[in-house]
Simulated scan of single mutants.
Amino acid sequence: MTLSPFAIKWLPVLLLAASNIFMTFAWYGHLKFKSTPLLIVIGVSWGIAFFEYCLAVPANRIGHAVWSAAELKTMQEVITLIVFAGFSVIVLKEPLGWNHLGGFALIAAGAALIFRG
């Protein structure tokens, strides 16, 4: 299957965003179920993470045609912060303070440095 240059550039961003939603639930979703035994939580998290890998691996494979590995990793980290911030507020009902937002902004500034070049 041949993808257009537009798809090769932006499909990885969409796939990484979707993969991060799965991974955030795998890593942090169990915090809503603290009475569930740890081994069960680990098994469920692995099952969720399988779908994350099914999206992240193609994202990186396709994206590496246009983005460097460092750019793909940076993109993934920024997407992770955005997804996590939403998850934290919406699912975990934990507020984000100015210190969280300031820290995220500094990470975003570092990401911008990666893409400058």
Score class of each variant (00 low, 15 high):
1 M>A: 13
2 T>N: 14
3 L>H: 09
4 S>D: 09
4 S>G: 10
5 P>V: 09
6 F>M: 10
13 V>F: 11
17 A>N: 10
19 S>R: 08
19 S>G: 15
19 S>E: 13
22 F>I: 11
22 F>P: 01
25 F>E: 03
26 A>C: 06
27 W>H: 08
29 G>E: 01
30 H>Q: 10
32 K>L: 15
35 S>K: 13
39 L>W: 08
45 S>G: 07
47 G>N: 00
51 F>H: 09
51 F>K: 10
53 Y>R: 11
55 L>T: 01
56 A>L: 15
60 N>G: 03
61 R>A: 12
63 G>L: 06
63 G>K: 08
65 A>I: 04
66 V>L: 09
67 W>L: 02
68 S>L: 09
71 E>I: 01
74 T>M: 12
75 M>H: 04
75 M>E: 00
77 E>K: 11
79 I>Y: 00
80 T>W: 07
83 V>C: 03
84 F>W: 04
87 F>T: 11
88 S>A: 14
89 V>C: 06
89 V>H: 01
90 I>R: 05
90 I>E: 03
92 L>C: 09
93 K>Q: 15
93 K>G: 10
93 K>I: 05
94 E>I: 08
97 G>T: 13
100 H>E: 14
102 G>T: 11
104 F>D: 13
106 L>Q: 08
108 A>I: 15
108 A>F: 15
112 A>V: 12
112 A>H: 10
114 I>E: 07
115 F>H: 05
